[in-house]
Design a protein around this nucleic acid. Structure first.
Lengths: 343, 343
DNA sequence: CTGAAAGCGCTTACAG
DNA sequence: CTGAAAGCGCTTACAG
């Protein structure tokens, strides 16, 4: 029986185990999937064969035969900003403990490639899908729905969306930061936000801060709101522009921490004391926020936790065939060193 | 034929296409895998059926039947440091264009979980594996080898290792930075490195700077070399310690940019002018390096390119059954604002 | 150039 | 409690 060794692929198969244990493949399969149905002696026999041969089941074959997927997919905008990378890392470790692998791809903020990525992920057999935010062509969600695969969106929670969402209310968070800024005595504000096209988070953040300032009687002039890619250099340029348009600005609201870092950097380059002469606020609370000097006042979001919740929601949906449950995540403001109280 | 619609899974299958095109499944399969073997008319028939039904092949089933894997695996230490996240993102996009998916998991610097992760990745059918660095128990590589799956290590290139490696020489890079530091007139150096245990990159970097200073007649006292986790706060504490042990230090060599950021931050907190009173060097050249104030003088490494090369090497090995070819990557020093010339 | 059939490594009704 | 057999969605010698 050990004679025909020269089989190429060293793969030990269910049949090998069955043969060694002198049972059928069905029985070995039950050892993994329905152990209670087996006699204790049988279990032991099988176990010994497995150990002797170093058998590990082929999870793809399993998925194929059982019609239960062994992978999930996630599509994120970028891996450069740690918020997504970390969220996805949390998903992955939560899922791996349950024998599910996560396939992650990133659009690099080219939203037009997302649909193709969805297709490919589906072709690769993912049993569920996580997407970021709600801004995308109808057809993408339609495609996912007709293929009957559970999905959720994340990092955004919009009451007006009927997607299953595991996210937070970006509008409300920005609004809250706005109140904090106004309480600190500021009325002359400039905004550096992310590109809002195809990005509901960037959109909601700008809407939130704008709405807040309007509501309090200080509507923000259009030319004091600049949209820019999430790059420090871009933000630095935007700061220059803002200060040109209104040299009396006392605070800059930034759409995320990377933008805030760029603005801070440039302000300091110009010899502007932050926050004494100019306040700057961030959004996300990435590690960078505490590295900057002074440390950034920003909106804290539970990125890792959110990833885990998304994993769990998808898992439940895939395994128990339930609909994906939406979940609104909390946020809070971290008061650190870049927002000064004035007057 | 459209009558028995109520099949649950909306999945369109090869057989569906074959039926619609009035050919055999073999023919449809050839449409994807060996189109030249088909008559033009047949191709058109099949094509029409595919489009009409919106068929997409099940890549897992394909992999199973063809014994050609459709996924690769990567295990990285963390996703927090963008160097790995970006490298892996590059791998992913390079591979996806070739219909291969990448499964990424991270150990979060708990090297003892790596072996289990390898097992799981293999169980999930990855056709190749990328690991970071060469420091790991023998059994891990043995396991991979006996399972006959191509692999490479990356982010490190050590002539003494016989793993296939796509990486750079950390020792040489640190040594080179050392020369630069000495040329700038420094002799009183402190070192804040990563934890060297199970981390050949951290080890080689510390070895490199130490060797360089020895070679030039300024051996670094043991107590002026501190190992610490890759966290800014840890590095800040280390800086305090170093300055206590020798207040006359003129330069701090840091094992990566995150550590450099922490040290820089703390120095500034203490009122120390960087680089006028204290120089600080980094390693990796992550985005952070240019955000810091002053911008970090650091070792630049082609992380994205390295990821792509690793993907390519693995792909060639998996598809063409070649051995994985090692590749040594270049590095260079970016002179920016944190290394001052003294005397 | 094309099809019938066996097979990839599993799971799971169906019998017994 | 266990096995024989069909099947998951594909690919690929083997014939013709």
């Amino acid at each position: 029986m050990d004679v025909d060794e020269p089989k190429k692929s060293a793969r030990v198969t269910l049949l090998d185990v069955a043969t060694a244990a002198r049972v059928s493949t069905a029985t070995v399969s039950r050892y993994f999937n329905n152990r209670d149905a087996l006699r204790p002696e049988t279990i032991i026999q099988v176990e010994q064969a497995i150990n002797a041969l170093g058998y590990y089941p082929d999870l793809n074959a399993r998925a194929l035969a059982s019609r239960r997927p062994s992978t999930l997919g996630a599509i994120i905008p970028t891996t450069e900003n740690a918020i997504f990378a970390e969220g996805v890392e949390s998903m992955q470790s939560w899922l791996m403990a349950r024998d599910i692998m996560l396939m992650t791809v990133s659009t690099r903020y080219q939203s037009e490639v997302e649909f193709e990525q969805v297709r490919r992920l589906v072709a690769h057999g993912v049993g569920g899908l996580m997407l970021i935010g709600n801004a995308r062509p109808e057809e993408t969600i339609e495609f996912i729905r007709t293929h009957n695969i559970p999905f959720c969106t994340a990092w955004s929670f919009q009451s007006e969306s009927d997607n299953p969402q595991i996210g937070f209310n970006n509008f409300a968070a920005a609004y809250k930061m706005g109140k904090r800024i106004i309480q600190a005595g500021h009325t002359a504000i400039g905004v550096i936000g992310g590109i809002t096209q195809h990005n509901d988070r960037a959109t909601d953040r700008i809407r939130g801060i704008s709405q807040c300032f309007s509501d309090h009687g200080f509507p923000i002039p259009e030319d004091l709101i600049i949209e820019t890619p999430y790059q420090p250099e871009e933000s630095a340029t935007a700061l220059d522009e803002l200060l040109t348009r209104n040299p009396d600005l006392t605070v800059i609201f930034c759409g995320n921490d990377v933008l805030a870092a760029g603005a801070l950097h440039r302000a300091q380059d110009r010899g502007v004391d932050v926050p004494r002469q100019l306040s700057i606020t961030g959004f996300d609370d990435i590690a960078l926020a505490k590295i900057l000097q002074p440390q950034l006042t920003t909106v804290h979001l539970p990125h890792r936790f959110m990833g885990e919740m998304a994993a769990q929601a998808l898992y439940d949906a895939v395994i128990n065939n339930e609909p994906v449950k939406s979940l609104e995540m909390p946020f809070s403001i971290r008061d650190r060193g870049t927002l000064a109280v004035i007057n």
